[in-house]
Computed example of a mutant assay.
Amino acid sequence: VCYLFPLVMASLCHGACVEVDSDTEAVANQGFKLGCISCKMRGEVPATAAVNWYFKASDDDEFSHLYSYEDLIGDVIDPRFYERLDWNGSKQTKDLQDGSIYILNVTYNDTGTYQCRFNRVLMYPNYEFQTNASKTIIINVVPRLTRGMASIFSEVMMYVSIIGLQFWLVVEMVYCYRKIAAAGEEALRESAAEYLAIASESKDNCAGVQVAE
């Protein structure tokens, strides 16, 4: 058991990779992270990977090689991104799963289509197996962040739900108040009827005693 516990913990730690889509709206004159994650399906198999990024501007016909990262070394290839681009992916490992990059001081010329390509080599005891993965991201540069319809709809539905819940609570309170009030009136009527019945019975008993005397 003592030997299995570290192995289980190691499996959990290495199995935490989740492929999340990148944001697609960048703000001019600000930094922007181009996300690209390619999880290794066989976490227990050692591997090495290289990541290459390609860019096609909105007025370009073909992709140009933008950036390359391999053996812990990054290289900005496209001169349009010199001194404006940095590696933002997996750190201190050749077994890359996060191939994200970060663009500094985004300009409107950065609008376009980006491709992230993983070239991974899985190293088995007797052979090596090469796999490739590619992701395409279309980036739009805007003066400021705009809220999507989904976000607006979610916020509206949240307020509607809150107002509906408050209305339901008011209705429940009124209903309970009326029910308690009605029960109180019924109890008073029953108490009054019982009192009158006792009083009438006492009067009859008193009249019978006087006749007997």
Rank of each mutant, 00 (worst) to 15 (best):
L4N: 02
L4Q: 04
L7Q: 14
H14D: 05
G15Q: 07
G15F: 08
G15P: 01
C17Q: 04
C17K: 12
V18T: 08
E19Q: 14
E19T: 07
S22H: 13
D23N: 10
T24A: 11
E25S: 09
E25D: 07
A26H: 08
A26E: 05
N29F: 13
K33M: 11
K33I: 11
C36Y: 14
I37H: 12
R42E: 15
E44Q: 10
V45P: 09
V45Y: 08
V51D: 01
V51R: 02
V51S: 02
W53Q: 06
F55S: 09
F55I: 02
K56P: 04
A57I: 02
S58M: 08
D59V: 12
D60M: 10
Y69D: 02
E70A: 15
D71M: 01
I73Y: 05
D75M: 06
R80Y: 01
F81I: 04
E83C: 00
R84F: 00
R84K: 14
S90D: 14
L96W: 11
I103D: 06
L104P: 00
T111H: 04
T111A: 13
Y114A: 09
V121R: 14
N126H: 15
E128L: 11
N132G: 01
N132Q: 15
A133I: 01
K135D: 10
V141T: 01
R144C: 03
L145Q: 09
A150Y: 10
F153T: 09
F153A: 12
M157F: 10
M157Q: 15
M158W: 13
S161F: 06
L165G: 05
F167W: 13
V170R: 13
V170Y: 11
Y175H: 02
Y177F: 13
K179F: 10
A181V: 08
A182S: 14
G184V: 02
G184F: 02
A187Q: 10
R189D: 07
Y195V: 00
A197C: 01
A199K: 10
S202D: 06
D204G: 00
N205Q: 09
C206Y: 13
V211C: 03
